[in-house]
Amino acid sequence: MVKGIVLAFLAFAVFAWGDAIVKEIGHGLDPFEVTFFGYLIPLILSPVFMKRGDSLVDLVRWNRPWLMGLRVFLIAATTPLSVMAFRSLPFAEAFAILFLMPSLVTVLSIFILKEHVRWRRGLAVCAAFIGVLVIVRPGFREFLPGHLAALMAALCAAGGVITGRMIGHTEKRFTLIGTVFLATTVLAGVLMIPGFAWPTAHQWVLLLAFAATAFAAQALFIVATIYAPADRLGAAQYSQILWALAIGALFFDEWPDALALLGIAIVVAAGLFIFAREQTLKRGRPDAVPLPETVPPAPAATSTPH
């Protein structure tokens, strides 16, 4: 168990550095182009995730095609939206808004999965939204396109979680992992055409580094699930906010003010409470069907395990 937790923390550290690379690329390249090259190499290397009995055809052979189609679209849309957020917002601020995802999962589960959410989780969801309002401060600060992109990325990631729960264990692990790389690459490849510009040598280095972090982080998380259940590792993702604060300050000269730090703390605390509460409820229902995914779908390089 301890080895799995350590590997999960390492995976999320790599995810955070991958997002820092995305921010470093800045506005020099179209966000869809960044996404395309960032996921092309992981797609090519994705067969390493295959188990005995898997084949490349499993990437497009789905047992529940409509749900899988919706899931891969939502997850594929998450990455370029996250890239837009990281390019235009302070690093930690973008992370904090993306961490609204667990609260959005709770809200969507009420309406789509008809789950009963008790008052404690309901209060945590409200607190998370209040935390985002404290960070963004509408009416007192300029509402940037990056804020909307981060909110949309969190919503798409939450939708990916919900569809994953609806799919259950009907799809192979390689299918769930590989389709994320495939769909993200294809969607970004089509959308990057109007704004395509050939990367400079420096940008190529950054793009290759981003692709390496995306693949390495996913691989580390998969190895972590060998030693600990994936749904027990979710809390480790919140270590990314510490990396975001440190990277933003040291490399991008971004120093959040007191209110921003308060909002970040509220969002993270609410997310951790929701995670802990779901774990408690799960232990109380031993017959519950476990979640199917053993690797987090990734907005930019940011993972969203569930």
Rank of each mutant, 00 (worst) to 15 (best):
P31F: 09
F215R: 14
E293M: 13
I41A: 06
F111K: 10
I97S: 07
A219E: 06
R87W: 03
F36G: 01
V105G: 03
V161T: 09
P47G: 06
L291I: 05
P80Y: 11
V22L: 11
L74Y: 11
L104M: 13
V136Q: 02
E24F: 13
L59S: 04
G122C: 11
G160E: 07
V105S: 08
A300R: 10
L40F: 07
W243D: 03
T294G: 14
R173M: 02
L70I: 15
G160H: 08
A124K: 05
F32M: 15
L133K: 10
L191P: 04
L123H: 00
V48A: 07
P47W: 05
L272T: 07
F251E: 05
F221K: 06
P102V: 07
R141F: 06
D231K: 09
F129H: 08
I222P: 00
R71V: 05
G139V: 02
A298D: 00
P290E: 04
T213M: 08
R71F: 06
A94M: 11
L67M: 11
F275A: 00
A150W: 02
G195V: 10
R121I: 12
V105R: 09
Q237T: 10
T294E: 13
I25S: 06
I241Y: 14
A230V: 08
I264Y: 03
T304F: 15
L56K: 01
P296A: 12
A217W: 01
F73A: 12
A13T: 15
L104W: 03
R141Y: 10
K23I: 05
R121H: 09
A150M: 02
F32W: 15
A260V: 14
R118N: 00
L245Q: 04
G139P: 03
T175R: 06
T225Y: 01
I226F: 07
A214Q: 13
I162V: 14
L29T: 04
R121K: 15
V125M: 09
P194S: 13
V161K: 01
I135Y: 05
I110N: 02
L262F: 14
A209I: 10
L259M: 15
L10E: 00
E293W: 04
P65N: 04
T35L: 04
L67E: 10
V117F: 09
V125Q: 01
G38H: 06
H147S: 01
A265S: 15
I247R: 02
P229C: 05
H27E: 09
A85V: 08
G4F: 14
E33Y: 08
I264Q: 08
A154M: 10
T294H: 13
F9M: 14
A128E: 03
P229I: 05
L233T: 07
L281K: 14
V107H: 01
L7Y: 13
W66F: 15
P80A: 12
R120Q: 15
R118A: 05
